[in-house]
């Protein structure tokens, strides 16, 4: 047996023992629990943060029966108005930090990926099909069609049909436009959380050490801790 397995096994025995209880708790805790999120907002960010979360919850409830177009519009406007853009460095003192929706709403600040993640999750909660949503890395041309300034950016794309031209939710402009109309954006790679919630697990492989290594899965994991766990409407 290779020696590297030994330490892994030791850790895993420990993880198994601690995990057994943790799994049991997370079965309960890691579901979508907006009350918990509300409580955490109050604890961490005070009245203002709790107020934002409360408004956010109200919005989700209100748009539940609307069609997708309207949901996109409401959610896009909500986050674009509540949060202001700051670089990760300014907010978190780190080069690249993916914040959970709670963190974003609590601080009312966010980087492009924080906007995208918050909108993505909110739309899922509002009942939008996960297969229609893609968080997409784009190369953005800043400052007009002739600008030579390009920046790494992230937006949320909504595909009404699989082959359709997607609608783009961006924090740079408030209006939702079709991908083909956004000549300033060049898509690089799109993804969603499909395939990460394995076999109906309550969180995206919470016990899996891989979850900590992947930035995307890491933020999903932290979200689960905030009260935004597995969303049964998503798949």
């Amino acid at each position: 047996m290779p020696p590297k397995l030994e330490t892994a096994r030791l850790k895993h025995w420990l993880a198994w023992i601690i995990g057994l209880s943790a799994v049991f708790c997370s079965l309960v805790l890691a579901r979508v629990d907006l009350d918990r999120m509300q409580m955490l907002a109050l604890q961490r960010y005070g009245q203002q943060g709790a107020e934002t979360v409360s408004q956010w919850r109200l919005m989700i409830e209100n748009i539940q029966d609307l069609d997708d177009e309207q949901k996109l519009d409401q959610v896009n406007r909500f986050f674009n108005s509540v949060m202001r853009w700051r670089s990760d460095d300014e907010i978190w003192g780190k080069a690249d930090y993916w914040a959970t929706p709670l963190e974003s709403m609590g601080r009312e600040l966010g980087d492009c990926e924080d906007f995208s993640i918050a909108k993505y999750i909110t739309l899922l909660l509002a009942g939008v099909d996960i297969n229609k949503l893609r968080i997409t890395y784009v190369k953005a041309q800043m400052g007009g069609p002739y600008s030579k300034i390009f920046d790494a950016h992230m937006v949320l794309a909504y595909y009404k049909q699989p082959n359709a031209d997607p609608q783009i939710l961006d924090n740079i402009i408030d209006e939702i436009r079709l991908g083909s109309q956004r000549e300033d954006l060049k898509p690089v790679f799109g993804f969603n959380s499909q395939g990460l919630w394995i076999q109906g697990a309550s969180t995206p492989s919470l016990q899996d050490p891989g979850a900590r290594l992947s930035r995307w899965r890491n933020v999903l994991r932290r979200m689960a801790a905030d009260g935004l766990g597995y969303m049964p409407t998503t798949e």
Binding site: R134, Y159, D165, P166, G179, P187, G190, F191, Q194, G195
Partner: peptide, 17 residues
């Protein structure tokens, strides 16, 4: 073991999973 799943796209166009 669950499969690794990723989306392939071309521009804004989805090519497949």
């Amino acid at each position: 073991v669950s499969p690794g799943i990723a989306q392939i796209q071309q521009g804004w166009q989805q090519l497949g999973t």
